[in-house]
Write a protein that binds this DNA or RNA. Structure first.
Length: 458
RNA sequence: GGCUGCGUGGCAGAGUGGUCAUGCAGCGGACUGCAACUCCGUUAACGCCGGUUCGAUUCCGACCGCAGCCUCCA
């Protein structure tokens, strides 16, 4: 039975969907003013695996991941670049898709954009005002009156008193209370704006997710995910908005993934210590990044380092080496496997423990390497692929992974291998080793197996 | 300051009241012309101090250290 750690209750709970057999999932996606970094990659990969596993478990999943395409940073960046907001956001959306595709992340069923949900947002704000949860200020802004929402703070484990005593609450004279948050911002000159009952303006950040999730999934849905940093205030405010406007519980299970860190510090744009996916891809294949992300449970911090990437690369190389020479059966389903399959399920059912699931796969790999019976070996390889489908691993041809995309050099490498094998046949070891050294310098490792020589990228 | 969470072997990272994680690396061996791959074996851990217990890395408490949130952030 699947258990999910619910941020709302801070404990693992048995997952029960609202509608049997169906799961409605909403994840907060990117604000598209720049390229994705490894932290964004983690969110995408984690919830990709959640979706894949739910589907493999028989659920029909509707997966929504929004795109924030209007906010302060976007406006600022577009101005800096001297381009339109649309140019900036469209380009970054394309870049994001490129990264996500490289990482083997399946596209969400819908990717709603904030700018395409203006009518829904305005309507929701009107409802909130009508119900007394929000007020229009003199300056044209509309604010949410936090004191009106009784359970404000339930997600982040705070109460209004605590928040009020915090040192960093910004002072804003238009608000009745510093804790109130903005639903609608009056337009400043030169800023993009939309019509509203409160004049020209644009939405606050939080309202878009309340509007779009309700729009795509309904007022009450199963799982809402995102990075841990969104828990407060973003998701807290989302609850206040959605539940205030709709008068019902909005989300059953809140899932928050841990941060990617560098030297024990959160990787973030504001700290400037981030690596974009694009940068990392120059040195490591996307699948290595994906494997690295899956080596830790999604709620744990994940420390980014070259060493960790190297470890992931070595581990993945061993899997592909094991898979390379076997003609895997294609119709193997891990769900039918009484040994490894059961252990894999137990791991994944326990709040998507991919780290533990990978250890099961390591056992399968070893069994595969030891297996002398060809039929059984083909089964084990198929099993490994079947697990890989859930984690989004082993989706490429083993040869392609191991050659590291060195196709242009392949002919040269093959020629050198022939040279070396000729030398070996003549027992000219000096010559054979010299050729191998030459290949090593090209970053190519040779493997002599059962009279056959294969190569891979180091 | 308030609120969360965390501290496991060289590194990464699961987990458990009393036999094993696993991966990377290391060491010894088999295989190999030598390597690589693979296999076999192997080393090594549970922040600190108390408490509960027959027994605690695992439960409880104090302490120390770290991170995150309280402001935009995945």
């Amino acid at each position: 039975m699947l258990q999910i750690h619910n941020s709302l209750t801070k404990q693992k709970e048995i997952f029960t969907p609202i509608e049997p057999g169906k799961v409605k999932l909403y994840v907060c996606g990117m604000t598209v003013y720049d390229l994705c970094h490894v932290g964004h990659a983690r969110v995408m990969v984690v919830f990709d695996v959640v979706t894949r596993y739910l589907r493999a478990s028989g659920y029909e999943v509707t997966y929504i991941r929004n795109i924030t395409d209007i906010d302060d940073k976007i406006i600022a960046r577009a101005n800096e670049n001297g381009e339109s907001i649309q140019q900036l956001t469209e380009r970054n959306i394309a870049e994001m898709h490129q990264d996500a595709d490289a990482l083997g992340v399946i596209r969400p069923d819908q990717e709603p954009k904030a700018t395409e949900a203006m009518a829904e947002m305005v309507a929701m704000i009107e409802t909130l005002i009508a119900k007394g949860y929000a007020y229009a200020a003199d300056n044209g802004d509309v604010y949410y009156d936090v004191s009106e929402f009784e359970t404000y703070g339930k997600l982040s484990g705070r109460n209004i008193e605590e928040l009020r005593s915090g040192e960093r609450v910004a002072i804003n004279e238009a608000k009745n209370d510093p804790l109130d948050f903005v639903l609608w911002k009056a337009a400043k000159p030169e800023e993009p704006s939309w019509d509203s009952p409160w004049g020209q303006g644009r939405p606050g950040w939080h309202i878009e997710c309340s509007a779009m999730s309700a729009n795509c999934l309904g007022e009450h849905f199963d799982i809402h995910g995102g990075g841990q940093d969104l828990q407060f205030p973003h998701h807290e405010n989302e609850i206040a908005q959605s539940e205030g406007a709709h008068g019902c519980k909005s989300v059953n299970y809140w899932m928050h993934n841990g941060f990617v860190r560098i030297d024990d510090e959160k990787m973030s744009k504001s700290l400037g210590n981030f690596f974009t996916v694009r940068e990392v891809l120059k040195n490591y294949s996307a699948e290595v990044i994906r494997y690295f992300i899956l080596t830790s449970q999604y709620r744990s911090p994940l420390n980014y380092s070259d060493e960790s990437l190297e470890q992931a690369k070595s581990a993945l190389t061993r899997y592909y080496t094991a898979l390379r020479d076997v003609d895997a059966l294609v119709d193997v389903k891990w769900q039918d496997d009484a040994d490894y399959g059961v252990r894999f399920k137990e791991a994944m059912d326990d709040d998507f423990n991919t780290a533990l699931a990978l250890s099961v796969m390591a056992d399968v790999r070893q069994a595969l390497n030891k297996e002398t019976d060809n039929k059984q070996a083909r089964y084990l390889a198929g099993l490994l692929n079947s697990f890989g489908d859930v984690l989004g691993l082993f989706q490429q041809n083993a040869e392609d992974f191991l050659s590291g995309g060195n196709d242009d050099e392949a002919a040269k490498i093959e020629a050198l291998i022939v040279q070396r094998n000729t030398a070996r046949a003549e027992k000219d070891w000096a010559k054979a080793d010299q050729v191998r050294d030459e290949l090593n310098e090209m970053g190519i490792v040779l493997e002599d197996n059962q009279g056959k020589t294969t190569w891979r990228k180091a």
